[in-house]
């Protein structure tokens, strides 16, 4: 009997945890399918009036299809670059700690703590000089660079935890250390790849504080910019904002669900043991 009631209490606690986490999603969904006249709670009414028309309207007004395209190009591009650059750097740092590699690692670790906004003014000048304002490729490079310290940190500690022996047989077969990494070690990095893709991917997908400076033209704007536009240009249009947010949220949620299985494993070995 006691066991049953403990189990019941446990599930009540879990129920509360789940409910707490779902509230923001429900509110967003509620707003996205409600008609504008009902956009505020007039009374305790938790059911919307199912205006799916909002989605079409939001899609048209904000041109969010283009924003999704921009966000995907920037996020995917930055993630591919990030995985290649950071895993290569992590390998070199973990396996061959010479003065240069150690210095790079320490500098990256120190800079991991610095919020990106600190360099915005000089960065703006730089971006203007290289034609990087309102350009997807410059934003891709910038996002890669912003997430580099974190990714290099994860890769380095993960590669340190893999035994060196796995590359050695390849090297005996005539591979250089460089090719041994891409042919052998890289295939062991799947868990940490997932962690980097999820953690950095979310940050890049949701990036607003850099996008607001460097992607001002509506043809290159990303999802957070498109969503926030409903509050500036059109004067707080809650329903359309919510509908646009829901559309923009979908790819992020799918990405997360797809990679989440190996995500925890990557964090365990990459961050905790390192």
């Amino acid at each position: 009997m006691k066991k049953v009631s403990i189990l019941a209490i446990k599930y009540i606690v879990y129920g509360v945890m789940v409910a707490i986490s779902i509230v923001p999603f429900y509110i967003l969904f509620y707003l996205s399918v409600n008609s504008p006249s009902r956009s505020y709670f007039e009374s305790m009414n938790l059911l919307p009036d199912w205006q799916f028309y909002n989605y079409m309207e939001a899609w048209k007004q904000s041109n969010i299809g283009l924003s999704i395209f921009n966000s995907i190009v920037i996020t995917v591009g930055a993630l591919v670059l990030l995985v290649l650059l950071a895993s290569a750097a992590g390998y070199s740092i973990a396996r061959f700690p010479n003065v240069f590699n150690r210095t790079v690692f320490i500098v990256l670790l120190l800079c991991m703590m610095i919020p990106a906004i600190i360099v915005t003014v000089p960065l703006y000048t730089l971006m203007k000089d290289i034609g990087g304002i309102n350009s997807r490729w410059a934003m891709t490079l910038l996002q890669t660079s912003t997430m580099l310290p974190f990714a290099v940190f994860l890769y380095t500690s993960f590669i340190k935890s893999i035994p060196k022996e796995i590359e050695e047989s390849a090297i005996i077969d005539g591979c250089t250390h460089f090719t041994a990494f891409w042919r052998v070690t890289f295939h062991f990095l799947k868990p940490v790849n997932s962690s980097v893709v999820i953690l950095a991917g979310m940050r890049i997908w949701n990036n607003y504080d850099q996008a607001i400076f460097f992607l001002q033209d509506s043809s290159v704007r990303t999802i957070p910019l498109a969503v926030s536009a409903f509050f500036q240009k059109y004067g707080a249009d809650w329903n359309l904002m919510a509908a646009a947010s829901m559309i923009g949220l979908l790819p992020a949620v799918l990405l997360f669900l797809f990679f989440q299985k190996s995500f925890v494993k990557g964090i365990t070995t990459g961050a905790i043991k390192g």
Binding site: S21, S245, A252
Partner: peptide, 10 residues
């Protein structure tokens, strides 16, 4: 974990 996926802005 899901709420962490939403943009802080939204």
């Amino acid at each position: 974990y899901m709420p962490a996926v939403i943009s802080p802005l939204i």
